[in-house]
Amino acid sequence: HMTFVALYDYVASGETDLSFKKGERLQIVNNTEGDWALAHSLTTGRTGYIPSNYVAPSD
């Protein structure tokens, strides 16, 4: 899985969403939902949907 870094803070709007903080590292599990991606946080160990425009690929 590619690793991504959060560009902004995001507060989950539902139970299936994943909250994260700017700078948090995430792995995209499934990116077939258009503007949303299923992601796993390497920081918190949690998995949920995130807005895909809130993250960018990290080196």
Rank of each mutant, 00 (worst) to 15 (best):
T32L: 15
V5Y: 08
Y49L: 11
V29G: 05
A39R: 00
Y54A: 14
L7P: 05
A12C: 05
H1Q: 12
S13K: 14
Y8F: 12
G34R: 07
G23Q: 01
L7D: 04
P57K: 09
S52W: 15
G48C: 03
G14K: 15
L38T: 03
T32P: 12
L18H: 02
Y49G: 01
S13T: 14
D35N: 11
T43E: 14
D59K: 07
S58F: 15
S13N: 10
G34F: 06
S19F: 05
S19L: 07
I28E: 01
D35K: 12
G34N: 08
M2D: 09
G45I: 01
L26F: 15
K22H: 04
A39M: 05
N31W: 15
L42S: 04
R25T: 14
N53D: 09
I50L: 03
E15D: 13
W36F: 08
A12T: 04
Y10L: 02
E24A: 00
S13R: 14
T43Q: 08
V11G: 04
L26S: 00
L7T: 06
V29Y: 12
N30S: 14
S19Q: 05
A6I: 03
T43D: 15
I50F: 01
N30D: 13
P51T: 02
E15H: 11
T32R: 10
A37I: 15
S13Q: 14
S41Q: 04
L7N: 04
A37Q: 12
Q27L: 15
S41F: 02
N31P: 12
G48S: 05
D9N: 06
N31F: 15
G23S: 02
S19W: 04
K21W: 05
S19P: 05
A37V: 15
T47D: 06
A12D: 02
T16W: 15
E15V: 11
V5G: 01
L38K: 04
T3N: 07
D35R: 10
G14T: 10
E15N: 10
R46E: 09
G48T: 01
K21E: 08
E33L: 14
H40I: 15
L26P: 01
A56D: 06
G14I: 07
E24W: 02
G34D: 08
D17E: 15
L18C: 05
G34V: 06
S58M: 15
V29L: 15
P51I: 02
S52K: 15
A6M: 06
A56G: 10
A6N: 01
N53H: 13
T43K: 08
R25E: 10
K22F: 04
V55A: 07
H1E: 11
M2P: 12
M2W: 10
L18T: 05
H40T: 15
W36Q: 05
F4L: 07
T47Y: 10
I50V: 11
S52M: 15
E24R: 00
H1P: 13
N31H: 13
Y54L: 13
S58R: 06
H40R: 12
L7W: 05
R46G: 08
T47F: 10
A12Y: 02
E24V: 00
P57V: 11
A56M: 11
R25D: 04
P51G: 01
F20N: 00
I50M: 03
T47V: 10
D17C: 13
I28R: 01
R46N: 09
T16L: 14
L42H: 05
T43L: 09
D9Y: 01
E15W: 08
T43I: 08
Y10W: 07
A39V: 14
G48I: 01
A12L: 03
H40S: 07
N31M: 15
R46P: 01
T44V: 01
P51W: 04
E33P: 10
G14Y: 08
R46W: 07
M2S: 09
K22G: 03
D35A: 13
E33I: 12
L42F: 07
D17I: 08
E33T: 13
M2L: 11
V5A: 03
A6S: 05
E15T: 11
Y54N: 03
G14A: 12
L7F: 04
L18P: 06
N31K: 12
Q27G: 03
Y54V: 06
F4D: 00
Y54T: 05
T16V: 08
Y8W: 11
H40V: 15
V29M: 14
Y8P: 00
S58T: 12
Y49I: 08
A37Y: 15
G34W: 06
D59W: 13
R25V: 15
T3G: 06
R25L: 15
H1C: 14
Y49V: 07
S58C: 13
L7G: 04
N30R: 11
E24P: 00
W36L: 06
V11C: 09
T44S: 09
E33M: 14
G34M: 07
G48M: 02
K22N: 02
A6R: 00
S58E: 15
P57D: 08
D59N: 11
W36K: 07
Q27E: 11
Y54C: 09
W36T: 06
I50W: 00
T47L: 07
A37T: 13
E24K: 00
L38E: 04
E33A: 12
Y10M: 02
Y8A: 08
E33H: 13
S52Y: 15
D59M: 12
S41I: 02
Q27M: 13
I50T: 00
I28H: 02
M2N: 11
F20A: 02
N31I: 14
A39Q: 01
Y49R: 09
D17G: 14
D9R: 01
Q27S: 08
Y54D: 02
F4W: 14
S13P: 08
V55Q: 04
E15C: 10
Y54R: 05
L26R: 00
T44P: 01
A37F: 15
G34K: 08
D17V: 07
E24S: 00
D9Q: 04
L26K: 00
T44R: 00
A37H: 10
T16Y: 15
T3Y: 14
L42I: 08
H1R: 06
S41L: 02
T47G: 05
L38G: 00
R25Y: 15
L18Q: 03
V29H: 15
K22M: 07
H1V: 13
G23P: 00
H1T: 12
P51D: 05
P51F: 02
G45W: 02
P57N: 10
L38P: 01
Y8S: 07
M2Q: 13
S41M: 02
G48R: 00
P51S: 02
V5R: 03
S58K: 07
N53S: 14
L26W: 02
S41P: 00
K21V: 09
T47C: 09
S52F: 15
T44M: 01
A39S: 01
D35P: 14
G45M: 04
Y10C: 04
D59T: 11
V55K: 03
T44A: 02
D35E: 13
S41C: 03
S13E: 12
A6K: 00
T32N: 10
A39G: 04
T43N: 09
D17Q: 15
T43R: 07
E33R: 11
Q27P: 00
V55C: 06
N31A: 12
L18M: 14
G23A: 03
Y49W: 15
T32V: 14
L18D: 01
V55I: 13
L42G: 02
V11E: 12
K21T: 09
F4G: 03
P51A: 02
D35S: 10
Y49Q: 05
S13I: 14
P57H: 10
Y10A: 01
F4A: 05
A39E: 01
T44F: 01
A6H: 00
L26D: 00
D59L: 13
V29F: 13
T43A: 09
M2C: 10
S52A: 12
Y49E: 03
T3K: 04
F4R: 03
V11Q: 11
R46L: 13
T32Q: 10
S58D: 14
T3E: 12
L38C: 12
P51C: 05
N53I: 10
I28C: 06
I50Q: 00
V29E: 08
N53V: 09
A12Q: 05
G14E: 08
G14S: 13
D59C: 14
D35L: 12
Y8E: 08
S41T: 00
P57L: 13
V5L: 08
N53K: 13
G34C: 08
R25I: 15
F20C: 05
I28K: 03
H40A: 06
A6E: 01
H40Y: 14
H40M: 14
T32M: 14
S52I: 15
A39W: 03
L7A: 05
